[in-house]
Design a protein around this nucleic acid. Structure first.
Lengths: 303, 303
DNA sequence: GTTTTATGATAATTTAATGTTATGTATGCT
DNA sequence: AGCATACATAACATTAAATTATCATAAAAC
């Protein structure tokens, strides 16, 4: 009858006290109840578990194997509930998980800087989820992260967005590229190295700088694809194509000698939006991180 | 009003389902209850926690910080209860803690051999508590261990003891001892290196072998004491005294060249009793360990 | 061995809690 | 604006749990 029901925590409490005192009557007194109540609690627990929890031996009793297991479980549960209450009572800005989603390039830039806060306050746990814009927003909606940084404004009214900075975009070609990087046909013959958000970046940068590509520019000739930020520039360095990336990602590439950043007539930056759910109170620890992210992103375009 | 009460697990279950569905009505249907019931469960939880768990936003809702914390707690609790039920249902002989108390010399002999079972079955966790006889029995009484090996029979009727073997005792003197080890006066002038159970061992071995020490032998001239089994023979090796130890402990000493085991006219062994509580059903995993311990101890005196 | 005392089990009753029906209220959509 | 949907609230019904009173049993005392 009780097989499916969950264990009643009050009964567990009685059981724990019973194992402490070794007496039904004392347990009842200490818990402010009567002796038959203790007997009933124990009986209920035994019904739920489906096995006796104690074996009566003369006056006293010993725990059965099941009783021993249940006692361990109950003690653990008590501790955890106490922990929960402590966590709820104090919203410590230096304790807890901080979950953020952003692009690979933002992670490259922000992660090491934000991690320092965690080494100062070991109670913190920074979790950064690298994802393209739409996926970041999806993670936010599903409460898998509490903050995200995206380069698009959304229509979703349930979110709040703050413009915190701009991320300069770069057109990168091989160092030994002998075409004219101001002529789109030359780029097209070289080929585009695609990556997550690659199409988005490309369109943002190419449209103002290459008037010859009118509207139907959607299909670039693609000669490569990889979703590892640190390796996107590898095929470019080998002369296999050009790509468009945020400046921070380009700067962190090792073989700078093998790539070339093209000077643009119309510099392009992607706006950065720190995004959170509107009707959601974030824990105190997010204050520092929100402020720091805004600060770091603000420095980005100026540096 | 509910501040002191423990969290009701059924309400938690409802809350978890509510976060899954996002709808009160659906939650009610899926849990076989009515919608007002869900509302009430949530309200009760909020009273217990002392803070709102959700913020209603138009039709739907979002979790508050407290709600998020509580959800995490509830999910963890659910998992743990499932684990408990699994552990109770199957008394797997290859899973769980095995808690044993014994003397240092027995641990030296048994621990490596018993540990092999743990490496074969990684679900096992062997915990050996090294303690003198009386302390081992005390640990057993307090349920801090489930088995112990002692060299004394107890009067406590709540325990069962099986004689599983005999532990030969050795009289050990420095290798360069130039007295006569059959004459107690010579030993006495050398001095006794004491250790836990040292007095007990000494009395057991000396009494039958040295008739000259009559009854009042209790006070040996002591020239050293240490409670680290592996180091008891260090002072003996340095010529600072003699001692009495189980053979297994002597054999494991590194500097065998510096010590000498005295041949005895009356060999003495300490009986070994595997001891457990009488009215206590041990988990299945103890079967193998009990049998193995008995087997290993049986081989002890013959080897 | 019998009596006494202490302790837990059981039954019947009272009390409290939990769940349900019926109804009210707010939000979102056409 | 008005209808539909979804949750809140109140009054009532049901079920669970606690208490009192009583009984059974085991250790202790005589």
């Amino acid at each position: 009858m009780y097989a499916w029901a969950m264990l009643n925590s009050q009964w567990l409490k009685t059981f724990v006290k019973l194992t402490e005192t070794g007496h039904f009557t004392q347990t009842a007194n200490q818990l402010g109840m009567t002796q038959p109540g203790v007997s009933q609690h124990l009986k209920k627990l035994e019904q739920q578990i489906g096995a006796p929890l104690i074996t009566k031996i003369g006056k006293g009793f010993e725990l059965t194997r099941e009783g021993e297991l249940l006692l361990g479980f109950a003690l653990k549960a008590e501790r955890q509930e106490a922990d929960l209450r402590a966590a709820i009572q104090q919203d410590d800005p230096n304790i807890g998980e901080v979950r953020i989603a952003c692009s690979g390039s933002m992670a490259l830039y922000l992660y090491p800087k934000l991690l320092k806060q965690q080494s100062v306050h070991p109670g913190l746990l920074l979790k950064v989820e690298v994802a393209p814009n739409h996926r970041s927003l999806q993670l936010l909606q599903n409460n898998e992260v509490d903050l995200c940084i995206v380069t698009q404004q959304t229509v979703q009214s349930s979110l709040v967005q703050h413009h915190i900075g701009d991320e300069p975009l770069c057109l990168v070609v091989p160092a030994d590229f002998n075409g004219n990087p101001s002529v789109f046909a030359d780029l097209e013959s070289l080929g585009f190295i695609d990556h997550p958000d690659g199409q988005h970046y490309a369109e943002r940068l190419l449209t103002p700088n290459f008037p010859e590509i009118s509207a139907i520019s959607a299909d670039l000739r693609t000669t490569g694809y990889i979703n590892q930020l640190s390796q996107i520039l590898v095929p470019v360095a080998q002369g296999l194509g050009y790509t468009v990336l945020p400046e921070t990602a380009v700067r962190s590439f090792e073989a700078q000698a093998n790539i070339r950043i093209v000077e643009l007539k119309e510099p392009v930056s992607d706006p950065l939006y720190l995004t959170a759910k509107k009707h959601r109170t974030l824990a105190a620890r997010y204050d520092w991180f929100s402020k720091k992210i805004a600060e770091l992103c603000g420095q980005m375009s100026s540096s």
